[in-house]
Structure formats: C-alpha cells, structure tokens
Nucleic acid binder design. Sequence first.
DNA 1: TCCAGAGATGAATCCACCC
DNA 2: GGGGTGGATTCATCTCTGG
Lengths: 408, 408
Amino acid sequence: MNNIIKAGDCKESLREISSSSVDLVYLDPPFFTQRTQSLKTRDNSGEYSFCDSWDSIQDYCIYIKERLFECKRVLKETGSIFLHCDKTASHYIRVLLDELFGMDNFQSEIIWHYRRWSNAKKGLLNSHQTIFFYSKSKEFKFNHIFDDYSPTTNIDQIFQKRVRDTHGKTTYKVAENGDYELMTGKRGVPLSDVWYIPYLNPKARERVGYPTQKPLILLEQLIKLVTDEGDVVLDPFCGSGTTLVAAKILGRNYIGFDISEDAIQLVKKRLENPVRTESNLLKNGEQAYINQDVDIFRILCELDAVPVQRNKGIDGFLKIDDEVKPVPIKIQRKDESVEVAKNLLERASSKNKFLCKILIKTNENHDISLFDLSEDNTIIVEQVEDFIAHKQDVVREYLGEREGYLYG
Amino acid sequence: MNNIIKAGDCKESLREISSSSVDLVYLDPPFFTQRTQSLKTRDNSGEYSFCDSWDSIQDYCIYIKERLFECKRVLKETGSIFLHCDKTASHYIRVLLDELFGMDNFQSEIIWHYRRWSNAKKGLLNSHQTIFFYSKSKEFKFNHIFDDYSPTTNIDQIFQKRVRDTHGKTTYKVAENGDYELMTGKRGVPLSDVWYIPYLNPKARERVGYPTQKPLILLEQLIKLVTDEGDVVLDPFCGSGTTLVAAKILGRNYIGFDISEDAIQLVKKRLENPVRTESNLLKNGEQAYINQDVDIFRILCELDAVPVQRNKGIDGFLKIDDEVKPVPIKIQRKDESVEVAKNLLERASSKNKFLCKILIKTNENHDISLFDLSEDNTIIVEQVEDFIAHKQDVVREYLGEREGYLYG
DNA sequence: TCCAGAGATGAATCCACCC
DNA sequence: GGGGTGGATTCATCTCTGG
C-alpha cells in the first residue's frame, strides 16, 4: 500500500480509493461557525486559512454527509471512524452518523479535555472537544489500552476473587486453607472516554502554524486504539497533517486529502522529518497525580525539576545535568501574592541555608521591589521559557563566586 | 413563593405553574435506554423503579418536547435550563433544545466526568454524562465561579465564589461554613465546562436507594451558577429529589414533580432532614489518598510497579509485561528496621497467600540473616538497579517450579 | 435468535477492630 | 477510648452461558 497525499476536495479524492480498504478514518471537518475563518499564521503569511461558512445548518449537513458516505464505503468491515467536531454542530453531525453507520455502531463519545486560559466571559469556559467513535460493524478491531487504578482503589483487594453467596451477596472467595483466592491477569483500568490531553502549547516545536492543529498524542492514541502496524489511516481533511504524522510514527500507512494546496505542501514537508515534541508533561503525565496541581507540575516538568510533595514553601528542586541541586523552587500560586509565595519559600528554607532559591512568578502584579533580592539569594523568574533556556547561566551568574556550590 | 412537591406527569403539573416564574429548570428525564431501571432501598423496604422504554426515538423526542415546551414557558427571561441526558439520545435532545430555545441561547455542554467500575469491555469505558445548558434569553443570570481545582487539589476550592457588584468591583462570596479562606490574589480560573465529580458511591450515606441518584454537589454547583438565594428551582423529573435538597440547602425555593408517588414520598421525607455526606474524596481531594513520599514513589516508578495507597505493609505490586502480578512490594522506610518492614509486609499479606513477596532494603544494617527467606518466599532486594535489570529472571528463578503462577 | 441469570469488576464508602 | 487502618460491602455496567 502506498501512502497518498493529495490536494483537492475530498469528495472527489475519496472516490479514487477502493472500497473496504481503509482501517481508520479520522475526520476533523471544518466547523459550522457561520463565519469565514481567516486565521493568520504567526509570521503573518496568512496562507493557511479556510472558509467554514454555510448558509444553513442543513447545507452544512449535506456537505458533511456526502463526504461521510464515501468514508463509510472505503472503510473495511473491521474499520472505525473518528469524527472530531465542535460543540456548535456536533449533535447534527451525530444524527448523520447514526443514519449512516447505525445507532448500534456508535461506540463512544470521546471527550478531549484540556485547560485553557481565557478572559472570563459570561458562561462556562469551554475546555473540551468531542470526538465521535463509530465502527463500521460489530466486528470492529479494538486494542485494549489500560490506565492506572485510581488512588482510591484498594488494589490489594483487587486481586481477591469474589463469589456470590446464596442470597446474592458478594463475598471474597476463600480457598480450602482459609486464604483468599487470587486472580491473575490484571492490567489496570480500561481506558476511559474522557481524555485529558494538554492543548498544543503555542510555543511547542510541534506547531507548524496551522489553525486547529491537534496534539500529536491525541491522534496517536486514537490510531493505536483501532489499528495495528501496517494498517491504513485516512484523513480527508488533513490540514497540517498531524494524523498522517502520527500514522507514520506508529508505522501505519496513511492517506491524506486537503482542499488547500498550501496545506498539502506543508504536510509533505512535515512528513519528511516528523517532529515529536518530547513533552515532559505528557511523558510524566501518569505521575502527575502525586503533585498537588497539574499546572504546577507542568512548570516543574518544563524546568526539568524534581517535584517535592507536601511542602507549602518548596515545589521542587532544580536539576542540572541530571543532578539534583540544592536549589529549592517555589511556584507562585494563583491565589498567592508574590510576597506570600516568597515568605513560604523563605520559611521552608530557613533551616537549610540554601545559597540560591528560585521563585517562579505566575501573576502580573509588579511588587518585586518589596524585596531585597540580592540579600536573600532568591531569583525571581518572570519568564519561565527564558529561564529554562539560560537556566545554567542564570544560576551560575547569580551565585557568582560560589559557582562551585552549584556545579560541584 | 411556596415550595411545591407533587406526584404526577409533569406535563400536566407544569401547566399549573405560571409563566415566567422560575429561575432554573433542571431536567433529568428518563433516558432512552429501552429498559426498566429499578433499585431496592438498602433496608429492602421498598423498590423504586421507572420505565424508560419507548417504541422509537421519535416517540421519545415527542415525549420530551411536549414537556420542554412547558418548561420554557415557566422560565423567566433571565432563567436557564439544564438538561441532563445520556449518550444514547443526547444529540436528538439537543436538536429539540435548539429548536425550542434557539441555537443562540445554547450556552454550554457541561461534561460531568467521573470514575466508576470497569469491566473488560470492547471499546472505551463510558465515564461521563452530558448536561446541556441553555438560557431563555441573552439576559440570563450568571454567577461567575472561579476554579482552582485540579485533580489533586482540594476540591472545596471549586466553591470559592466571587461576584462582581454593581460597580463592577469584584467581591468574594463567603461560603457558609466559613472554612474557606479568602483568596489574596488575582482571580482564579473561570469554571470549566468539564467537571470531575465522583459518582455517588454505592456505600455513601447520601444514597437513598433511588436509581440514577445524582451527587448533591453536582446539583449545588448547577444551582449556584445561575440562581441567587430566594430564586425558584424546578425539577420536573425530580426522582429522589436531589435537586430539591440542593435547592433547600442553598436557600432557593423549589418545585418538584415526579410520576411516582413513592418517589414523592421519599422526597418529602428527605427534605425534612437533608443529609449532606461529607465525602472524604470530595472534602480532601485525591491528594489525601496518596500517602507515599517522593522517595518511595520514585523507587516504585523505577520498578515499574503499581502503587498501593492505603496499606502500610504493601507499597505496590510488581508489573511484568504490563500485567500487574500478585507480587506485593514493600519498601523499607528510613525509620524502619528491615525486621519491622518485613513484619508489616507479612501481616498485610497474611490472608493472601502470595507465592512471592518483595522487600526493598534501603538501609545499611545487615540483619537479613534473621529470616529464613526460602520459607516465606520473600525476596529481599539490596540493589534496586540490579533487581530491575533482572526482575523477570529473579522472580522466575525464585519461584522455580511455580513459574506458571507468574507467567500463566 | 433472544432472553435470563450469573460472573466479573473498580470505586469509594462504612465500620469493626486494634493499638 | 478514639484515631487510624484495612477489610467488607454495594452498585452499575458489560460479558458470557445455557436453555
């Protein structure tokens, strides 16, 4: 099977794909936002824009349905389709999916949940998107993915076999010798339909400047779920090509269409050298739960710091060249003034005379002048990214002649 | 305004409510699950059940639409409606809401996310429900709630409420119990539309034996969002009356209908003495369950072990090839002798005849000879790195002829 | 082919018991 | 006796088996 990347309306392009030849279709069709998107790239080249303007929701539905019909045709009997859509029209699209694939083949409504900053508007902060998961038939391919048990679960009890007594009451199964009978084959909890995956960081290297670009890890998870190596993944609205990149990384074949010639050029370039941001947050995400706060944990990850639990004044210790340095880090909480944060750091550090401390500012209030920084050896960091880039230099410079302390 | 609780079809009962008199309608209509829901009370004194079966989705929609129409009529211009539904028919219901309230008055799709049971199911584990939030007009009442919650933060902070007064100045709304401290700094994160609220636990005292009973805290949050004290909350399918209890606790007036006379009796009794369980998980957050310090956790991570949180004698279970094995691991604490650590492990394992146990030594005292290791199947690990490298071999070798136990 | 009933299973509580 | 520990329990799903 050859990989295909082609510009043009997918309605036409899909017709060239043979029936029952694709294992997974992922669609991220233009949203029904009733306005023309003219999003500019960061360098203002403005090339990657598209129009998602329809006269009515009915027109929109017809547009989508025509393309979904072809998608279904090219899917194998064991294949699945993921449709990514926004809140505005998701219900209409799902009605279409019900009609085309059948209500019985609805598998999941996947919620992609992320955190996002925004000015408080009237109403709740929108922080999720929906992905509908339909299979072509009951015999769809599905790979089980397991998650960690909840910290509240009594894992030692999970191994104990259970039986129902004559009254229907569940009790633990006891072996002849009086011990509990144990179970094997435990792999954790099956993956939930709510996925917390951080929104693509605006500064991530992964970003190629295309609007609505999705995190690679989201696509990887979807692909892993219903395909194996060598299978075929198709994205009729491939945009910047994240789906295809994920497919390539995972050893799947890929087919991508997009109406924009510019997008196709971008995809081809991107596929030559697929960049996968090694996000510490995502890599360590499973451990995030031991930290008090995901945001704090993320900053610690970015700093490559060692997290500290259960200490109000110290969130972590600085790591340089894989060595943990006796440099405590405190990250200002949203509800803390810089002063309060600094006091907590001071108090926590009072017994250990650290030669250097770091306070990460996260709020905007400019009251630094309250402190005599040079006296208590606290570096107040305003730009985390800058600090990371020059972490070693900043710390060395600040300590001056005590350099040996940090680097010894 | 008098509170009303009445048995009967809400289609009729709603007609007796005057137009534009209600601030919030919350509906949790029967789901389109095509089966009968029933649950016995804990003391087996009664059984509450209802039937959600319709001949077709169209019939179901008509049923819902007739009632929604009345709901809209009784709502004030500043009022809002929350419709709670499950995945099976949510899209059809939202189409109805669009028609009745207008797409422009769609405010949010609230995702109630929880963790619950699991079973090896083909497909993803369903672990959310959807609540649609529509307003009657653009001038809907909305109280901004700010959120400092993250999975491991004290969940109580969700309810730290701030409002703007008429001069646009932000003031804090103090919680009733006074436990919450005032924030000193900037505003929090505006409340997201994804809410993690634990499912009502089977053992919770809050349970009254009614199927589909919702957590009180979920309803409280909804009510706080769009009403003030003295406002009127209406639930046309009130079931066990959680909505009304929440309204009463928060000082709102309430109107509740339910087809079942039993349910109405239950509600009346429940309202006399509203029980608000102090869920440990909700009160303290997940963090409270995580009692391992960083060092212990790091060793568990290195071992690729599954952490166990509520057991003094067992810190984790061994994982080999992604399968959690019934091989408990105990890591010696700094203030523990090997002997003490081993006794804790023994005691915790006494009823479960694990064929192999692992004790990680972290201190230097060489008192291993105290134990007859071969007898109780405990591997005492002195070098974690070595053990990790040969984890599989060591365990297999140790078990000898019982190999099938670990690898079967 | 379809339905009933039994089995499996995780979350998170309650509560007996033990120092 | 009381604070903490950990064992027991319940419910809601899905799967499987037998008739």
